[in-house]
Write a protein that binds this DNA or RNA. Sequence first.
DNA 1: CTCCATAAGTGAATCGGTTAAGCAAAGCTA
DNA 2: TAGCTTTGCTTAACCGATTCACTTATGGAG
Lengths: 345, 345
Amino acid sequence: MTNARRKKVTLQQVAEAAGVSKATASLALSNNPRISEPTRQRVLEAVEALGYVYNQRAASLRTQRSYTIGLIIKDVSNPFNAELTSGAESQLADHDYSLVLATTDDDLDKQSRLVQTMLERDVDGLIFSPVAQTTTASMQDLMQYCPLVLLIPYYQKLAADCVGMDDENGTARALEHLIQLGHRRIAFVGGFAAQATRSRRLASYRDTLQRHNIGFDPALCIASPVTLRGGYEAVHQLLRLPRPPTAAYCYSDVNAFGVMLGLRAAGLEAGKDFAVIGFDDVPEASLWHPSLTTVSADPRGLGEKAAQLIHRRISMPDAPVRRIIMPSHLVIRDSTAPPLRERSN
Amino acid sequence: MTNARRKKVTLQQVAEAAGVSKATASLALSNNPRISEPTRQRVLEAVEALGYVYNQRAASLRTQRSYTIGLIIKDVSNPFNAELTSGAESQLADHDYSLVLATTDDDLDKQSRLVQTMLERDVDGLIFSPVAQTTTASMQDLMQYCPLVLLIPYYQKLAADCVGMDDENGTARALEHLIQLGHRRIAFVGGFAAQATRSRRLASYRDTLQRHNIGFDPALCIASPVTLRGGYEAVHQLLRLPRPPTAAYCYSDVNAFGVMLGLRAAGLEAGKDFAVIGFDDVPEASLWHPSLTTVSADPRGLGEKAAQLIHRRISMPDAPVRRIIMPSHLVIRDSTAPPLRERSN
DNA sequence: CTCCATAAGTGAATCGGTTAAGCAAAGCTA
DNA sequence: TAGCTTTGCTTAACCGATTCACTTATGGAG
């Protein structure tokens, strides 16, 4: 009784109960003006009486629209992606689209399988954050099967819609803030060389230093996993240098938190003995102690924008490619202070 | 060219290219032994040559299986739910199921719409964390349409599978820890009376106090939103009492973080002047300063378990109802210390 | 050489909707 | 009152797979 799956009621049965044809029932439910009001009412009553549930899947076979969008990202547990997902989901829900979520765990094979699954599910569009090793050719190919929005900015090689954040500008602002405070030895912490986003930020880091006549020191660039531990261990490495840095610009907030923990373990405090800047502005950034100066990237807005772009692409398949760079801005909090030497003299 | 949607290749076309019937092509692709190896190869070659993509949706119309599970929760941006989602998604992906995600924002109307959408999408099952005002009757009704797993423990009124965490035990452990440290005036902070989970924890809070001959003081129970601000404001209210508490047991980690901020604003420090315990053990709990003593609830495991339960229900519709309580345990960190008076004498 | 079992495929119904084309009755025009 | 339009509904094809029932060719047994 309780778990007995109720036998499904079909439109045919509704039609019979209302004394009309299946076609009429279908038209009535879609508010087609060719159906008279009394008839429509009878159909609606039959729907109610029988407990009919519309079968979107059956319909989509004919209409060729699934009202489903796929989202492929690395993981949801990371707060940045969670916000992004949330933004995309609510934007899509507002337009009666559903979100099918899949996570690659940064694994190329798994990604291939998931992309294939999405195509087989016949999603109307795909929002895709490809893992680093993904080839341009495979994405080019994918575009032929399904409207695509990439969660990567500046992918010039590919004529695909994409949306990403302004890594260059954000990085420049962060470094200029540190330079203005008097820092000259500034570390770059976190991420791996294979990550396109990191490459862009690193390039911008070098550019900005150069513009301010500060030499680039490779010893100050520490690659590490985008985790707390990554930041924690990086700071130990940095403090052992003959000329340690006085500040660190981190690939992500989570790295920055790790750096702050590492500093504390070394008897130093961020915002007093050492300046730390993150990237993302996850909710925890403002709550941390000391609160984290960081480049705010509005992940939720990113997800919403991606959803809007995929809608646009679906309704206008031949619209010109749009590459959106979401503005980022520096949020100055308590983790940044002038370098010690400056203040102590 | 670039965005031109490739015209879809159907099984019929594959069959023609391979010189066989549609039925044969279908059987060949499902590795049916009735199809000879040479024929199967020809079909596979045709698939490759034409770039055929299997249409799961069309198939499901016939097979009555969508290989899709719906997940309805309040929001994904909250780290607890993000972990839960992640656990469910990877568990489902391992069994070739896809996850359709929908968030209610704690809005009953939106929830109704989303449930309806899920039914129309014909999901094979639904993992559902209902908002507080959801009626038992509506869930009872829902069960007749679709296999259901509730993300709520102890829902005795309903013969539904469910999985939740052990609120009673976790609460008892937390309070016993505080009592053992010498605390006698212990506040209960966060959540609203309408929340079933909160009611359970509150009941367990009272029981445990009683078992240790400590009187219950309603002034020490502060209802508040499950946010930082909620905890922050609660602590102000508590400190103004004639006999303020020396410890707080919080509904969630995020409330506990708010309490710690509120204490700091009042010149007190958690773990030194006041003891604080949270619930959930979100990743930030161990990173906070001081690190948070909290009841660990393994949200990822919860999501995985829910996915397993829904699979079980799908394959065995008449299996007995299973209510799983995920064990919770107290993680003792730095935010709990003996009460000040005790230490200072 | 006949009979039957088995192997390998095929034809057609089916899932549950949508929609183009058609048709009968009523309304309107001249 | 004949002819045309409009209204309201129905018939049947269609979407892209699966699968049951059936056919035909092949091989082996008797």
